[in-house]
C-alpha cells in the first residue's frame, strides 16, 4: 500500500515536471514565445507616415504620442473579423468607462482603394465614439503597416471582388509611444481589459 502511494506520487511528480517543461517550451520556443525584435512594432516615435482621419484631419504617429493608444488594422468590406473586433473594442471601451476618454483608439484601413475618408466616417460611426478611422494613399498605409510590423495582402474572391488578409491583433502603446503589448485575435477576450489597463497605468507610472 505504502509502496503504491510512492509510485502514485512519483507518477504525479513526473507529470508535473512534464507539464512545467511543456509550459516552458510554449513560452520560450513554442507559439507563446515573444516575437523576435524585428517583428515587434516600432515605438510610435520611430514610425513615419501621413494619413487622414475620418473627419479629414491630417494625422501621423506623432498624433498618438501623449496618450495611451490602441491600434487595429482592418477594412470596412470585411464581414467577420473587423466588425467583430471593433465591437469587442467598443465593449472594452465601455468597460473602461471614463478611462476610455484618456486613450487614442485608431482603426487603420488596409484597403484604401475602397475605404475613402467618407467610407471610414460612416463605418466608425456605428461603433464606440472614441474610435477614429484612418486612411490615406496606398504607400502611406504601407508605411504605417511596416511600422507596426502588420501585414496585409489583397486576395481575389469568386465573382471578381477581393478581400484582404491582414494582421488582426490589437496593438497597445503607452503615452510615450512604446509598445506595451498586443491583444491577439484568438486570445480569450477577458484578458483584453486588464491589458488595456496596463497601458493606461504605464502612462501614470512611466514604467516600460
Amino acid at each position: 500500500m505504502q509502496r503504491r502511494h510512492v509510485v502514485q506520487y512519483g507518477a504525479a511528480g513526473v507529470g508535473a515536471v512534464a507539464l512545467m517543461l511543456g509550459v516552458g517550451w510554449w513560452r520560450v520556443d513554442g507559439p507563446g514565445a515573444p516575437k523576435p525584435a524585428g517583428q515587434r512594432p516600432l515605438p510610435l516615435s520611430a514610425m513615419d507616415f501621413r494619413l487622414t482621419d475620418h473627419e479629414g484631419n491630417e494625422v501621423g504617429p506623432e498624433t498618438l504620442i501623449g496618450r495611451p493608444t490602441m491600434v487595429f488594422f482592418g477594412f470596412t468590406y470585411c464581414p467577420d473579423v473587423c466588425p467583430t473586433t471593433l465591437s469587442d473594442i467598443s465593449g472594452w471601451l465601455e468597460d473602461l468607462g471614463d478611462d476610455a476618454a484618456r486613450m487614442n483608439v485608431v482603426f487603420i484601413t488596409v484597403d484604401p482603394e475602397r475605404d475613402t475618408v467618407e467610407a471610414m466616417a460612416e463605418y466608425v460611426g456605428y461603433f464606440h465614439p472614441a474610435i477614429r478611422g484612418w486612411t490615406g494613399p496606398a504607400n502611406q498605409v504601407a508605411r504605417a503597416a511596416e511600422g507596426f510590423r502588420a501585414s496585409y495582402e489583397r486576395v481575389p474572391t469568386e465573382g471578381g471582388d477581393y478581400t484582404m488578409n491582414h494582421t488582426a491583433s490589437v496593438f497597445l502603446f503607452d503615452a510615450k509611444g512604446e509598445l506595451v503589448t498586443m491583444i491577439d485575435y484568438h486570445e480569450p477576450r477577458e484578458f483584453a481589459v486588464p491589458k488595456i489597463r496596463r497601458a493606461l497605468t504605464e502612462d501614470v507610472e512611466g514604467a516600460t
Binding site: 517583428q39 473579423v81 501585414s151 486576395v155 478581400t163 488578409n165 494582421t167 488582426a168 485575435y185 484568438h186
Partner: peptide
Amino acid sequence: TNADGVSSM
C-alpha cells in the same frame, strides 16, 4: 488566424 496574427478567410 495564423501564429503571426494574420487573419484570412
